[in-house]
Write a protein that binds this DNA or RNA. Structure first.
Lengths: 332, 332
DNA sequence: TTGTAAGCGTTATCAC
DNA sequence: GTGATAACGCTTACAA
């Protein structure tokens, strides 16, 4: 192993002091041009790179951002990470990606690791079971900025960036009504989740306002299998009386498709289908499924710029919302 | 901001030396039990955590592994990362995930970052356009162990872990023959890629050995769209004379499904379908698509154990292969 | 314009 | 058992 180059080695070689080398390398104004040239030349030759540990130790912080998500095997979080990665790289930061495996204990362990490594900032999507926010509060005491995204806490003292779920729900319902697709079977996810509650409220509010609440049937499915079952059962019980199905997520959408398939029903003639999605899965089917797009990528961009604002200091704690857009498809 | 606890603070508080505190905290045998107790108690109270920068600077390496992939938005790499993450965590390491955006320059930049941060080891899947291995060679000179996975270089001086592509191709062909599904339309990906070449060789070798080479039609699709086109065209040209379609990847499979759909053909009666996949997408359709599973997760486990071997020093450079398994589905 | 020296928080090698 | 002390590689007042 060729020993790595350090400031000291360069300074010894050139018979100048370490500090001069250090300054020359960072183009400090008051170092002689000739000296700079010599230093830089040798540094390049020796393939010198500053030792990040030493720099960080000295500066007391690293240029690493952390992203803590319940699961990275998730297209939405992926695109979020992708977006943050792009911006982070552009600003000279790198990203440390941590999974909580949807376990609050692992989540806490991840936070400890972040503190431990003095990361520059943390982006967090909570696990669905995170109960106490104590570990997060602790980050404030060590001045690590925190931005919650997607799965955010109720607590108002935190910075949050989230999907405008209520509006997304409204948007979906409006689309269905506009296309005259009542009566509709709406399948939501876990009823306990706030995301479900907000989307459902938006959806039903529109139906109520339009006076078509009686043409709306709601049910809940926690997994794709359950969505299959509901689809089959509701259509059989109600004698295929639904003009359309609304699905709250990709997973449910997949279930609905399987269900309709079992019933030998064709999209969009036998029934229309509209879902909420981050955008990958709906395009795989034929006809492509119409969806209201909640963009993880855009959320990432928004979160990052929020993080930068927070780090610059001139801002207040608040929650930002990201709007969704309609992507047409042959299923509606 | 509450100042963070350090060894010095604890030692001042207790009027003992820094070294004793350090030793007490790591249960060094020759420190008095009573002293240990007091130190640990105070440390817990002050919420002390060792400063990772200082430790790393001192020890000259960090306990962070890096994973460098072309794209993380890819189910295969996901499961790979998931597996490595699990093992790394268990061993007290953390993971730094870096994307190359399939750009050799970004890839090189990522490697520099790894060196710079003295990572404990690197797992790399090359971009499809990586030409020179110089940057990788450089890692050896600074003693950073390297394991290539999935997209590995031809160079034999590197450690590699990869899918047994040839065998996987064979396995697929054997399954198709066993189910009497000739003639078959086989759609592969980019013909330049070694992964394509190996899978294709395995596939055709079996057909040749079985004497059914004349019942095999091969074509190449770089994107899903192309696969749609090929599917439609080949079936129309050949008057639906194929008993089955073989697809080399998820993306192609999606294209084939759309194509068959356009042709109003039903699986598995009008045509059978077998694909190679990491396992997520094939289960979304109905009937579920039969596939030969190349497990990113298993590859991750294998890579990690390989990394550990390399780090322990008692091993030689070599390439490991991971076998695939058949997952039945209604499409075959 | 350049050099000296203190310190960042730890670990490790000596002494006592 | 415990305590000095010297690194690790870098930045940054403060001198010269």
């Amino acid at each position: 192993m060729k020993t790595t180059a350090t400031l000291k080695k360069i300074s010894d070689h050139l018979n100048i002091s370490i500090s001069t080398v250090s300054r020359a390398l960072k183009d400090h104004p008051d170092v002689a041009p000739e000296t700079k040239r010599r230093v830089k030349e040798l540094a390049a030759m020796l393939d010198y790179e500053p030792n990040a540990f030493a720099v960080n130790l000295r500066k007391k912080h690293s240029n690493v951002f952390a992203v803590v998500v319940p699961e990275i095997s998730n297209y939405f979080y992926h695109s979020f990470i992708q977006a943050v990665e792009e911006d982070a790289r552009r600003m000279g930061y790198t990203l440390m990606i941590l999974q909580s495996m949807n376990d609050p204990d692992v989540e806490e362990q991840n936070l400890r690791l972040c503190r431990h490594n003095h990361v520059a900032g943390i982006f967090v999507a909570l696990t669905s079971r995170t109960a106490h926010m104590q570990p997060f509060k602790k980050l404030e005491t060590v001045d690590i900025p925190l931005v919650f995204f997607d799965k955010v806490p109720a607590d108002e003292t935190f910075n949050k960036v989230s999907i405008a779920d209520y509006d997304t729900g409204r948007q979906a319902a409006e689309l269905l009504l506009k296309h005259r697709k009542a009566p509709v079977l709406a399948i939501f996810g876990n009823a306990q989740l706030s995301i479900t509650q907000r989307r459902e409220k938006g959806f039903t509010d529109v139906c109520r306002e339009a006076g078509t609440l009686n043409k709306l049937t709601i049910c809940y499915a926690e997994h794709a299998d359950e969505a299959v079952r509901h689809t089959v059962q509701y259509f059989q019980i109600h004698g295929k009386a639904f003009a359309s199905v609304f699905s709250m997520s990709d997973e449910i959408m997949c279930g609905v498709l399987k269900g309709l398939n079992q019933l030998q029903m064709k999209l969009p003639d036998d029934a229309a289908l509209l879902t909420i999605s981050n955008g990958f899965l709906p395009t795989l089917f034929s006809p492509e499924i119409a969806f209201v797009k909640t963009s993880g990528y855009d959320l990432g961009k928004l979160s990052f710029s929020r993080m930068m604002e927070i780090m610059s200091g001139k801002t207040f704690v608040r929650e930002n919302f990201l709007a969704s857009t309609y992507i047409p498809g042959g299923s509606l």
